[in-house]
């Protein structure tokens, strides 16, 4: 029983891995697309990048709502307060970035008069009036946020592996899919 209490709920694990998968697809796609010469392929890749980004935003919102309804399981008792604080900070930052990156991308597209249409389903309103200078600053912000994301993701994945292989405390297993009743 104690083991299942340490487990994230199934929806929480699903949210986590869907977002992880989308981000791990999104980043190489971003570098692929910016390297393409201007072509229908480039426009298509940008469109996909924007659609996936907006999806990440939406799934993150659902994920936060679920987290509020079903708080995460407690951490192992032997973790010190400093470790907990670093963990909470990293997680907070990751949440912020999964919202900030798409939001800045959307703002940047708006400033370039490129309305965003997720998967062609509907068109999002432009958030700001077209403005070339603002667009360049937002593009830079999007890039800096990406670097922050790389740093934070590395820390996050490194910590998960550290918990699993060094501390062997089940923290990673709590988030893995298909780990229902195993110890």
């Amino acid at each position: 029983m104690a083991q299942t209490d340490r487990q994230y709920t199934a929806p929480a694990r699903l949210f986590h891995w869907v977002i992880a998968g989308l981000i791990l697809y999104q980043i190489p796609l971003a570098y692929y697309m910016i390297g393409l010469p201007l072509s229908p392929d480039k426009l298509g890749s940008y469109a996909l990048h924007k659609s996936i980004g907006i999806t990440i935003f939406a799934v993150s919102a659902a994920r936060l709502a679920w987290r509020w309804l079903r708080p995460p399981p407690p951490l192992p008792a032997n973790l010190g307060p400093a470790t907990r604080r670093v963990g909470a900070f990293t997680h907070g930052l990751l949440y912020c970035l999964t919202f900030a990156m798409p939001l800045v991308g959307w703002l940047s597209s708006s400033a370039a008069n490129f309305p965003v249409s997720p998967f062609g389903w509907f068109t999002l309103p432009n958030l700001v009036a077209p403005d070339g200078e603002l667009h360049e600053r937002l593009e830079l912000a999007h890039r800096l946020l990406a670097y922050m994301l790389f740093g934070t993701l590395s820390l996050h994945a490194g910590a998960a592996l550290y918990h699993h292989f060094i501390l062997r405390d089940g923290v990673l297993r709590a988030m893995l899919p298909f780990t229902g009743n195993r110890s």
């Binding site: 426009l43 298509g44 940008y46 469109a47 924007k50 008069n113 490129f114 309305p115 965003v116 249409s117 998967f119 062609g120 389903w121 068109t123 999002l124």
Partner: peptide
Amino acid sequence: EQQGAAFE
């Protein structure tokens, strides 16, 4: 129309 969205 570009990328599924209208622009002016």
